[in-house]
Structure formats: structure tokens, C-alpha cells
């Protein structure tokens, strides 16, 4: 299975090639929490806030995906706007004046967190727990009978597990499966309202669906609703311990694309594989072989050694 070798090289040295220059973007000045900041045109309020060192909570936002601005946890107060605006997707405009920690902002963020925490199992979403503390959210206030999205966990293949009791409907998995990366469209949001959920066609099990098990949905899931089977099994066995894990980057052993793998190991065993969002080749995405095809280096299958 050898590819044909390259014909005649080395070649004489030529000019260093460059990408064509991008059109220049003008700089936009705005005020956030009373402080002035300049960012390039096309930037978002979130970018500008980040530049000022303001930590804006986000949930459905990810650098590598198109902002859907559905979680509304990043909302900020924009002077002159009737409603709050989502920082993650609202583009900056000259002379905007923005408050990121006003009473209104805090109330909406707190309610959003209470809405989520009262309806979704956030036990494997540590970041959400931090936000809940930060905004003193109290999900208990809706009482014990509050409707939730609790449902049985879906285990229909050996590679990953779907626990939609933990799904906040951030759309990230749908985007990663769709136009933003994989373009397989094995899953979509189905149903409507509080019954809206992530589904294959007719909620068929994954093996009957178009899923190609790239696991790019797991890579972007912020709550652990989508989880490696290896991680799921270890968590159930009580052996999952991130303090004992290290992460090392290497290159995928399969095709010639050169995908960067971040290998998470615990006790000398690979327990999960991810890829950096900012890598020019992968943008965080892998295929089935890259994400799951490492079993051959395991002495025992991950998650099984304690059984």
C-alpha cells in the first residue's frame, strides 16, 4: 500500500509563498462597564469584553462553531436596546455602551442558570456549577415538581453514550455534526418547545442512523451529555479521576492529514482522545479512527481494568 513517490525534488529555492492579504478591518471603539476598548470591526461584544479581561459566562458558544446565541447566559445590557443582547454574537458598533454586570444582567443570567439547573442534570458540567455559585442561582425555588428533561441514558454502541438528561440544548453537537464541521447531519433538534431534543430521524438508535462516529459532538458537548463509553464506564465504576490524568499531544497514526490528537491517559491507559480547537488542521475535529481507533495500544480496554 505504498503511495507513489514524488518526482524530481529538491527544487530550487523560490520566494516564500503567502496567502493573499485580507482586506483591512477598521478599529471600533466602544465602552464596556465604563472602560473604553477598541477592537477590529466584525468582532463581538464577547471579544471586546475578553480584551478588557471581563469574564463573560458562556455555554452555547465555542470558538470553532457559528454562534447560535441560544443559551442567553452571556447577555449584556446595551444602552438604547429594549432587551439585553447576547455578547457572543452581537457585533460591536461604534460608541456602543455596555454593562456586563448590571442588576438586569445579573437577574437574567441567574434566571437562565436556574431554569437550566432545575430542568437538566448538570452533575458533569463543572463550569456550570461555577456559574451557579457566581450568580447565587437557586434552582430549588421552582419546587420538587418542576418539569425536567430526565430520561434513560442511551447506550446503543461501544464508542459513546448519550445521556440527554444532561442536555442543555446548546446546539453545539448539531453544529459539529452539520455545517460547522462534519456535514453528516446525523442529528438535529427535533420536536418543539420544552420537548425539543437532539434526535436522529424518528429517534432511531445511532447504529441505524447516519452517524459516522467521528465523535465531534462529544468534543463540543459542554455538559457530559455525550461521553466516551470509556469515560462513562470508568465513572460508573468509580475509577474516573481527572487528577490522575495527563494530556499529551501526538499525531494520529492513520491517514496522511496530520490530525493532532490530545491523548488523555490515566494510569498508563488511554481514557479519551480530543483535539485542540485552535489546531489549523483539525479545529478540534477528528474522525472515527482518530478519536476511537487507539484501542490497539491498550493492554486492556479502557474502563475494564478494575472489573
Amino acid at each position: 500500500m505504498l503511495d507513489a513517490p514524488q518526482p524530481t525534488i529538491p527544487l530550487p529555492r523560490g520566494p516564500v509563498p503567502h496567502a493573499p492579504p485580507q482586506p483591512g478591518r477598521r478599529s471600533i471603539e466602544l465602552k464596556i462597564d465604563g472602560k473604553s476598548v477598541s477592537v477590529a470591526e466584525g468582532s463581538t461584544i464577547l471579544d471586546a469584553a475578553k480584551k478588557l479581561g471581563i469574564d463573560t459566562p458562556t455555554l452555547c458558544f465555542l470558538e470553532s462553531l457559528t454562534p447560535v446565541n441560544v443559551c442567553r447566559v452571556c447577555v449584556v445590557e446595551l444602552e438604547g436596546s429594549r432587551t439585553l443582547v447576547p455578547a457572543c454574537s452581537r457585533k460591536v458598533e461604534p460608541n456602543m455602551s455596555i454593562k456586563t454586570d448590571s442588576e438586569r444582567v445579573r437577574l437574567s443570567r441567574r434566571l437562565v442558570l436556574e431554569f437550566l439547573a432545575s430542568s437538566v442534570d448538570l452533575s458533569t458540567a463543572p463550569e456550570m456549577q461555577e456559574y451557579i455559585e457566581r450568580y447565587a442561582a437557586n434552582p430549588e425555588r421552582f419546587g420538587p415538581a418542576a418539569a425536567t428533561v430526565a430520561q434513560p441514558v442511551k447506550i446503543d454502541n461501544d464508542l459513546y453514550v448519550r445521556d440527554y438528561s444532561k442536555c442543555v440544548l446548546c446546539y453545539k453537537c448539531v453544529e459539529a455534526c452539520g455545517v460547522d464541521a462534519q456535514n453528516t447531519f446525523a442529528i438535529a433538534v427535533a420536536g418543539r418547545g420544552f420537548s425539543a431534543h437532539i434526535a436522529t430521524e424518528f429517534d432511531a438508535p445511532l447504529p441505524d442512523s447516519a452517524c459516522v462516529y467521528c465523535g465531534n459532538c462529544i468534543g463540543v458537548c459542554p455538559t457530559g451529555a455525550l461521553m466516551f463509553k470509556s469515560e462513562y464506564d470508568m465513572r460508573r465504576a468509580g475509577t474516573w479521576d481527572e487528577r490522575r490524568q495527563t494530556q499529551t499531544d501526538t499525531i494520529c497514526p492513520y491517514c496522511g492529514v496530520g490530525c493532532d490528537l490530545t491523548v488523555h491517559q490515566q494510569d498508563g491507559q488511554i481514557v479519551r482522545v480530543t483535539s485542540p480547537l485552535d489546531h489549523s488542521v483539525t479545529h478540534g475535529n477528528l474522525c472515527i479512527k482518530g478519536r476511537f481507533g487507539w484501542q490497539f495500544v491498550q493492554i486492556q480496554p479502557a474502563g475494564k481494568q478494575e472489573e
Partner: peptide, 23 residues
Amino acid sequence: GAFESEGTVTSSERRVQRVRRTV
């Protein structure tokens, strides 16, 4: 090679990249 040793590989776009011992 990709998981248990140190070195480099070169991808299709002539990109030389580091492989590392991960386990």
C-alpha cells in the same frame, strides 16, 4: 509510533509534526 515514542511525522501537506509518547 504515534502513542509510545518520540519523533516526528510528515503529513500530506508537508507539515512536519511532533509525535510524543503518550503512554
